[in-house]
């Protein structure tokens, strides 16, 4: 099975509320694809359709070229973390993984392997109802890894993780992609995907708003802007504005200048006798790029 997910023209309504409106994108192997969008953009519904939980009104979702519902032992093809809180609280974490493993013809040894892999070994024989949100995320990730699948889907895996956990999961996502797997990670916070995602699919109102490599996206958002660090912020703003630039305050001693190249900025500040510590080409964060892209599609409720 090739490690791809192909989502094509998905439409889905829940009652009168449209959830998906022609969602189309593909996820390729060897990279982490971020799936970003505000709450209600249709990310979870898309993932549920990919693993056959919901039926689309129109369109198709294929994993490795086939429909998920036709797979035998599906967890060896696609691993998914959709809802980390979906647990029987009185069952231990290990038993939760054991029944999943048995449904795929896998044994208890594989359960212990993935428990160690996600660092839940010591808590494995405790009731899952007592797990913290972070531990539940780890258990859900363990469940996704159980069948060693070439395709992985994670819905909001960063939720509830402490900083240490976030560092861990970023490393895990990168290493899974490096092994050649297709990894789709949804998040409503673009910043969580910074330095992890090689590709992003931005969703809004049930369809794809942007589908780009992360490098391109950041470059586009950074376009022609210059960052200035100066102790004399007021003076710098006045001088630069007089020279025709647009100036935005981004911090107590930082400004972002557009409409004036880096060299021009240095010349203006020098001429005006304003001291500055740094002038650099501004590199947008993924967050900024995302905010720009989704400005129109955010639904305010």
């Amino acid at each position: 099975m090739d490690a791809t997910v192909a989502v094509n023209g998905l439409r889905k309504r829940f009652g009168t509320t449209p959830a998906l409106d022609g969602m189309t994108f593909t996820v390729g192997p060897g990279t982490v694809t971020g799936f970003v969008g505000p709450n209600g953009a249709g990310k979870s519904t898309t993932m549920r359709i990919v693993v056959g939980l919901d039926r689309p009104d129109a369109g198709s979702a294929l994993v490795g070229g086939v429909a998920y519902r036709t797979l035998r032992r599906p967890l060896t093809h696609v691993g998914a973390l959709l809802d980390a809180s979906a647990l029987q609280p009185s069952r231990t974490g290990r038993h939760h993984l054991l029944w999943l493993a048995q449904s795929q013809g896998l044994g208890a040894r594989r359960v212990d392997e993935v428990l160690d892999q996600v660092g839940l070994g010591p808590a494995a024989r405790r009731r899952a109802g007592g797990y913290s949100l972070g531990m539940r995320q780890r258990l859900g990730i363990a469940a996704a890894l159980l069948g060693d699948p070439p395709i992985l889907l994670f819905d909001e895996p960063f939720n509830g993780l402490d900083p240490e956990g976030i560092v861990w999961i970023r490393g895990l996502l990168r290493s899974l992609a490096d092994e050649g797997r297709a990894v789709l990670v949804s998040s409503h916070l673009m910043s969580e995907l910074q330095d992890v995602a090689g590709h992003v699919v931005v969703a809004g109102r049930g369809r794809v708003v942007a589908d780009r490599d992360v490098e391109d996206l950041i470059a586009a958002a950074s376009d022609g802007r210059v960052g200035v660090r100066t102790a004399a912020r007021e003076d710098a703003m006045e001088a630069l504005a007089r020279a025709g630039a647009t100036v935005t305050v981004t911090g107590p001693d930082t400004l972002t200048v557009s409409g004036l190249p880096g060299a021009g900025t240095v010349a203006v500040l020098t001429a005006a006798g304003v001291p500055f510590a740094e002038v650099s080409a501004h590199r947008a964060t993924l967050e900024e790029a995302y905010m720009e892209l989704t400005r129109e599609s955010v639904e305010f409720r």
Partner: peptide
């Protein structure tokens, strides 16, 4: 009630 049916059906899509 727990949403676990999703895991069950994802494991047994037939």
């Amino acid at each position: 009630r727990r949403g676990l049916i999703g895991s069950t059906l994802a494991a047994t899509p037939g």
